[in-house]
Simulated assay, not measured.
Amino acid sequence: MGGIGVPICVQCGTASNPCRCKVVGPTVGFLAFAAAAIVEWPVGALVYCFKHGKGRRIMAHPATVVYPSGTNAIPI
Rank of each mutant, 00 (worst) to 15 (best):
G13Q: 10
P7M: 12
S69H: 03
V47K: 02
A36V: 01
G5C: 13
T64F: 01
C19A: 15
I74N: 04
V65N: 00
F50L: 13
T71S: 07
N72V: 02
E40R: 03
L31P: 04
A60F: 07
V23Q: 10
T64G: 05
P62S: 07
K22F: 02
H52G: 10
I74R: 02
T64M: 04
G25Y: 06
A36L: 03
V65H: 00
A36H: 03
I8K: 13
Q11T: 04
Y67Q: 04
P7H: 07
R56W: 09
V47E: 03
C19I: 15
A35M: 12
N17F: 10
V66H: 02
L31M: 13
A35D: 03
A32G: 06
Y67N: 01
Q11W: 05
P68Y: 00
W41Q: 09
I38H: 08
V24M: 06
A36F: 06
A63R: 01
T71V: 07
T14N: 08
P42S: 08
V66Y: 02
G5W: 10
W41K: 03
Y67P: 00
S69I: 02
T71E: 05
V43K: 15
C19T: 15
N17K: 06
N72Y: 05
I38D: 00
A15N: 14
V39T: 09
I38R: 11
P26E: 14
L31N: 04
P18H: 11
G53Y: 08
T71M: 05
